[in-house]
Simulated scan of single mutants.
Amino acid sequence: MKKAPLTLIIATTLALSACSNDNAAQQEANDTLTTYTTEVGQESYALGARMGIYAQEQVAVQDELGLQSDKAALLAGFTDGFNGNSQYSDEEIDAYVQAFAMKFQAAEQTEQAALIEAGKNYLVENAKREEVVTTDSGLQYEVLTEAEGANPKAGDTVRVHYHGTLVDGTVFDSSVNRGEPAEFPLNRVIPGWTEGVQLMEVGSKYRFYIPSELAYGQRATGAIPANSTLIFDVELLAIAPFTD
């Protein structure tokens, strides 16, 4: 899941998302549903809805990290702050928010350490399989289908079919599922791809096991968490210039 800046999570969006998940509050909102007919009303409602949708996505990050919250207190704090009558001074608010930020960062670091360790353990065990080859960089691969075509170079543009998963089997991207091959320059992709696809011949199919440092490293992208080891099944269809 894509993670927002911490300040956004611990500010008003977190409070909004918490109260939006309360079943009783949701039922009450449904019972008093209002249709907005003015431009100001429609725009204001849309802005509020966007904040709620965004916040609901972000609070899932907090839940995944095991950080609990008192939803009633969150709602009360948001309402009081919005109305200008907070029970706490600005200094007290800053202190509590900073304490939560430290908890959030610690939990996130623990999660990332566990993810790194899981990836390393997976690769250690995977390397013991006879069909798996490990290169000097740490990239692992196995040949699924051999071929006798040409090998691409780092500056070449290739056409491939691929299927990408995390080590737990979660699919994060797949040209196979989309039913349409992908084309890209090999020097514009993650290092594990640049190295690995150059080992392939046109017509071959490989499975690559890519350590996080040869993938996206500490950067989360799309459905790929930071520090993730990635698995790709890749079929090399052609090297540019393409004939079709």
Rank of each mutant, 00 (worst) to 15 (best):
G41Y: 07
G169M: 02
G149S: 10
A114C: 03
Q42P: 02
E39L: 13
I231R: 02
L236Y: 04
F232R: 04
L14M: 13
L47R: 14
W193E: 00
A15P: 02
S89T: 15
R129A: 14
S89D: 09
M51F: 08
T134Y: 02
A99D: 09
T194M: 08
L47N: 10
T79F: 11
E28C: 01
E39S: 12
Y122K: 01
Y36P: 01
E142M: 04
G179I: 09
V176C: 00
D233P: 01
L199I: 04
Y162G: 02
F82C: 12
D31N: 14
L33F: 13
A118V: 10
K153C: 08
S20C: 12
E183Y: 03
G119R: 09
S204Y: 04
N85P: 03
K3I: 15
I210C: 06
K3R: 15
W193I: 13
E117V: 07
A72Q: 13
A4Y: 10
V171I: 14
Q109F: 07
L16K: 11
T12C: 11
Y122G: 03
V197W: 05
Q112L: 15
S20V: 04
K103F: 09
S174C: 12
L186H: 08
A182F: 06
I190W: 04
A240R: 08
E108V: 02
R50M: 13
A101M: 12
V167S: 04
F184C: 05
V59N: 10
G169H: 02
D168Q: 00
Q42K: 15
D233I: 03
A18Q: 14
G217E: 09
L8R: 12
S228R: 01
L47G: 03
Q105K: 11
T170E: 11
Y162I: 01
Q26A: 12
L123Y: 05
Q27V: 13
Y206A: 00
A223L: 15
I10W: 06
L8M: 12
D156W: 05
Y88G: 00
L166I: 06
R207C: 00
R129I: 06
G52F: 02
Q105G: 04
Q58I: 08
A24K: 11
I239A: 03
I190S: 03
P185H: 05
Y45L: 14
N21L: 12
F82Y: 15
N23D: 11
S204M: 04
L166K: 10
L186F: 08
A101E: 13
A107V: 09
T221V: 15
T165S: 09
L214D: 06
E180C: 03
G217I: 10
I9Q: 14
L8K: 11
D70C: 07
T38W: 04
M1V: 08
A73L: 14
S228E: 07
L186V: 10
V202D: 01
V171W: 05
L236G: 01
L230N: 02
D90P: 00
L199D: 00
G84C: 11
V167Q: 06
A99T: 05
L67K: 12
L139T: 07
S174W: 12
E183K: 12
A18D: 14
A4D: 09
S69K: 14
T110S: 15
A127G: 00
V202S: 05
Y36R: 09
D63L: 08
L166T: 10
K103H: 12
G81I: 13
R178I: 06
Q42G: 05
F172E: 05
A76P: 00
E57D: 14
